[in-house]
Design a protein around this nucleic acid. Structure first.
Lengths: 203, 203
DNA sequence: CAACTAATGGAACTGGAGTGCCGTTATGGA
DNA sequence: TCCATAACGGCACTCCAGTTCCATTAGTTG
């Protein structure tokens, strides 16, 4: 007499099940990097992960569902932000980190593919938004600290400042295609800092 | 004895061929809006356009190729920029136009889908980059005019200012998922103007 | 260290995307 | 107006992603 068990993999999450998930997520990342979201298919992921095709379909159903799970996994691996004691330096460190990530041979295509996946599926989009909410919240600490030191007008929306740093970098990666380098990173950080000091992000 | 004919549709581009292209591109847009790029398939587009499946495969080959052509078509329909005589107002007009477009029930999903398509295919990405290059160039005129009036430091990179206006809006649409409204538009425009005046975009 | 059963994986099946062939339509030039 | 042929469209075919079924493996509990 079974009660509800919801999704497969929830009752016995350890051992083999965990190994399968890890292997499948890694394979999914590889496939996304090589072929983009459109080229992602579950049968191929199963082959790469050396896992039964049935298993992948049963646990993730669709490519969008698989990417959503991959994003959940990515959100858990958050690096700590820098804290140099200067707003300009912290924002520059953030901008340079984002540029390094987006120009990385693996991470860059992966992020592009993940954004593409999110445009096709509501649950994947939510997972992506959670991912960014975590990162933004983490780095917003720099801005709050600067505000505490009196570097910024009171009432400054810290999260909005952090978004302003990343935005030009993602815009280039996804939309305009203009080059991404350290100069661009520093300019994005400088623009956000100037605007924040001028009170543009006071809510 | 035929010479080279390159792609089909290039030797007799008028009449039926043109009607087919128009019909297929409209159907492709509809499909992208309803199902996103991942749900796009050429057989379905052919049915919607009431055109032979073979024709669509012969002329566009892949979904990415079809989107690339759609982008070329979109790039040709460029609206003229505003020219109010004030940098702040012009940038605000631009930001509000972008927000109106990205929150439009048809255009919003269409832009998201088109960006997704560009992440999967090199030629589609090039078409997208050309599309934005045209728009950016058009609006850069506002910035050059402002520089001419002495509102901005000499050497200001006009295109970079325009990119700075759009970037936060696209970042919200594609990555963070934060709301898009007129307040956000005005803030994006204000931030770009402040940073530009401070000389951040002097190259 | 059993025993129960969650979870995996192989194998056979199916539906529809994508292809090739060829007759039909209608464009553009003379 | 008429001809050569570019371009379209129907049909039959292939191939593989996605599904179903059931036997096998191995977590988890007591």
């Amino acid at each position: 007499m079974d009660a509800v068990d919801g999704e497969p993999g929830t009752v016995r999450p350890g051992g083999r099940t965990a190994r399968v998930r890890e292997s499948v997520l890694r394979a999914a990342g590889d496939a996304l990097v090589e072929q983009g979201f459109n080229g992602l298919d579950l049968a191929d992921v199963a082959r790469r992960a050396e896992v039964g095709k049935t298993t992948v379909y049963r646990r993730w159903s669709t490519t969008a569902g698989l990417v959503a799970d991959l994003l959940t996994d990515m959100a858990e691996q958050s690096e700590p932000r820098s804290d140099t004691g200067s707003l300009d330096e912290d924002l520059r460190a953030n901008a340079r980190l984002v540029v390094r990530t987006l120009t990385d041979a693996r991470q860059g295509p992966l992020f592009a593919a993940v954004v593409a996946a999110a445009t096709c599926d509501r649950r994947t989009a939510e997972a992506l938004h959670r991912f960014y909410a975590v990162r933004i919240e983490e780095w917003a600490g720099c801005v709050d600290a600067a505000a505490g030191r009196g570097e910024l007008p009171p009432g400054t929306d810290a999260r909005e400042v952090i978004r302003a740093v990343s935005a030009p970098l993602y815009y280039r990666l996804l939309a305009s295609g203009d080059p991404l380098d350290e100069t661009v990173a520093d300019r994005a950080a400088a623009a956000a800092a100037v605007a924040a000091r001028a009170g543009v992000y006071v809510s």
